[in-house]
Simulated assay, not measured.
Amino acid sequence: MLLDEKIALLSQRLLRLDTGALSELRRMEVGGVGPLPYWALASECGFLDDDAAAWMRIVHILALLTPRGELHAGDRLHDPERRLGAALCDGGDPTWPPAGGDPRPIVSESRLARLLATPASQRGEALTRLARMLAARRDRGSGVNCKEIAALLLFGDVERNLQQIAQAYYRRLDSAARKAEKEEVQ
């Protein structure tokens, strides 16, 4: 099974889990034995025989990003078209910035710079912190490209992935700044 398929299936399954299982995954100690919901997902989604520590981190991060509470029809977790860099800029709110609002990114440029410079051994923890920030603000109906998160944790050579995150972040920021300038002129 390809990574795209594993992530799509995992995100669908996470959205369908009961609140108790999701809570276990959000509290999961990455690198430990892992709770039963993790192992059930690993089996169902095709990563049972893959690097358990990396997949525990991925599942943990995606569980953090999964909308809390009762499932709504429009809830989304994974959206292959919604770049991680854009979500880091706008906080997962596709209407950001509000009309007449300041296009200040949710994740500061200095935080983005730290993520881009984070060594591979610390990248999981950095992504977990950013996921917590996004989860607090993200629109339930706006997903994020979860494959980008997984790729940063599964593969050693991620320079291109990091460049794409920075590109999407600044593309989103520039678009918002131009929109704000147009509103000021009118």
Rank of each mutant, 00 (worst) to 15 (best):
E24T: 07
R26N: 03
R26D: 05
E29M: 12
E29K: 15
G31H: 03
G31M: 05
G34W: 05
L36D: 15
L36H: 12
P37I: 04
Y38F: 14
W39K: 09
L41W: 01
A42C: 06
S43L: 15
G46Y: 05
F47W: 02
A53D: 15
A54G: 09
W55L: 08
W55F: 12
W55H: 06
M56A: 07
M56V: 07
R57Y: 04
R57A: 15
I58D: 08
V59H: 11
V59N: 13
H60F: 02
I61E: 03
L62E: 09
A63G: 03
L64K: 00
L65C: 12
T66H: 09
P67N: 07
P67C: 10
R68C: 05
G69W: 01
D75C: 01
E81H: 05
E81N: 03
R82V: 07
R83E: 06
L84K: 05
A86Y: 08
L88W: 01
G91K: 01
G92M: 04
G92K: 05
G92D: 06
W96Q: 00
W96A: 00
P97L: 02
P98M: 01
A99Q: 07
A99E: 07
D102T: 00
P103H: 00
P103D: 00
R104M: 02
R104S: 09
R104D: 09
P105M: 02
V107L: 09
S108E: 06
S110L: 02
L112W: 09
R114A: 07
R114F: 06
L116N: 07
A117T: 03
T118P: 13
T118M: 11
S121W: 13
E125H: 13
T128P: 12
R129Y: 10
L130I: 07
R132N: 14
M133L: 13
M133E: 13
L134V: 14
A136D: 15
S142P: 11
G143M: 08
